[in-house]
Design a binder for these strands. Structure first.
Lengths: 250, 250
DNA sequence: CATCTGATTTGATCTGTATCAAGGTGTTTC
DNA sequence: GAAACACCTTGATACAGATCAAATCAGATG
């Protein structure tokens, strides 16, 4: 079993006959709540590059990613941008009790979200505590991820940042797709160089250079546009600067 | 009313006859729950510099800061350190459902914490949903703060980082002390240069230089060891790079 | 009061990443 | 299949912040 899949409990398992097959609300579901959820849910699709909401805009729903990738970003007056959230399938977006979005939400790839109108969702939360409990767990996970990310932004070198990002995506990819085999890891890097630079707090040129460096050293193999192969996950891990034991959260 | 105190709702208000006078659990309290909380709470004191728990150590309590300042930090193998949490009075530490601490928790100043043994606290959470709701709110606030912090780490210059940190502490200080007047802001900077550098992802020399620069330009006045005066908060705010409207969270 | 200690400041130099600029690659469009 | 476009790579240079080193300051201690 490759290192990437250790310690990862499957998060996208289907949940009995729950029609909502992603992490947000499917855990421990009971039929009456599900009926209520069913009634207030609807799907929205976005093309890669489209903006879901702008920071400051009204956001009258909460949502969970069904397929594709969404990003949360902050922008400074002069245009400097920092990504602050990366939402993969089953991740949750939106804050109960807040009227407007605090971040730009953007579709990094083609994207389908399952939305719940906020008002009824909040009412449902009040009535069914375990939805709130689930949300608390997820928020705590996100907070841990944010803190790992802070270490990356504050203290890692460009090379370590790139290696870290590739490992993070490989891991999360592996945990989503249950076809994880003993073979080398192969997956889609679904971010442009620019998106990567916004994630890592670098310029896109530096990202490009460091990716090239890792490729030249054989730590990663790029196939075609976005496909990445990691021949030896442990060796790449050593480049991240992380504790080798790597007790990764989420 | 100085800018720093706008938009800040008082968070340390006493809560009727609630004996627990800090934010963690005092909101919306009812007497029977309080009795239960009373039974499982105890206080612990630490001297400045002492470690509360090391990352990876067993942590069988959750706690809220009563007085003083605690920090959460991550350390890399080679010793690089990044602060990932700054806990002021009324802030909460510890994660229900986790056995060990994910971070080093350190007393930045002399510190008193109000601790709740984890097991009974978790049981209480199950029985009284609004404690969980309160915790969810607080966790969401922390996540927002972490994301603001990520922008700082990823995209701000050293000068902007220093200005931001001073504003953040001034604001939080102002919201804790209800003596906020129209006069200039005066407060204690309770962090060493090293702690500031760990917060900001800089070296301590760079912190020192930039603080000196702001002092020479009259944006801040330092009195004695740690006292800071901000003669014109708005002018300092302009140096942070933040949106002038500054919709600051917590 | 002298000394010791830890924290801070300041200086000189080095380096990793940003910046500016040009060229390359693959894909879509007509 | 040529042109247009978006995305990516590579090169040359500049600069912010790191690093190494030394001096200064403020309390604490005897």
């Amino acid at each position: 079993m490759p290192r990437a899949t250790q310690k990862i409990q499957t998060i996208s398992q289907e949940c009995g006959d729950c029609p909502i097959r992603h992490r947000a609300v499917c855990a421990r579901c009971e039929s009456d709540e599900l009926n209520l959820l069913e009634q207030i849910k609807y799907y929205r699709s976005f093309e890669a590059g489209q903006t879901v909401v702008w920071a400051g805009d009204k956001m009258d729903f909460v949502a969970s990613v069904v397929t594709g990738i969404a990003t949360l970003s902050q922008t400074m007056e002069d245009g400097r941008r920092q990504m602050v959230g990366l939402l993969l399938p089953s991740d949750f977006a939106g804050r109960p009790g807040r009227e407007t979005s605090a971040y730009d939400v953007t579709a990094a790839t083609d994207l389908v979200m399952c939305c719940f109108r906020k008002k009824p969702f909040e009412e449902l939360m009040l009535r069914t505590p375990h939805i709130g409990q689930r949300l608390l767990e997820m928020t705590l996970d996100e907070l841990d991820a944010a803190r790992e990310w802070m270490l990356l932004l504050g203290r890692k070198t460009a090379r370590e940042k790139i290696a870290s990002l590739i490992c993070i995506i490989a891991r999360r990819d592996a945990s989503l797709q249950l076809n994880a085999t003993d073979a080398e890891l192969r997956f889609d890097l679904p971010l442009t160089r620019e998106a990567m630079s916004e994630y890592l707090g670098l310029t896109l040129e530096t990202v490009s250079r460091q990716v090239s460096a890792l490729r030249k050293e054989g730590l990663i193999i790029t196939e075609g546009k976005r496909q990445i192969v990691i021949p030896d996950f442990d060796r790449l891990l050593e480049e991240t600067g992380d504790d080798s034991d790597g007790g990764f959260l989420v």
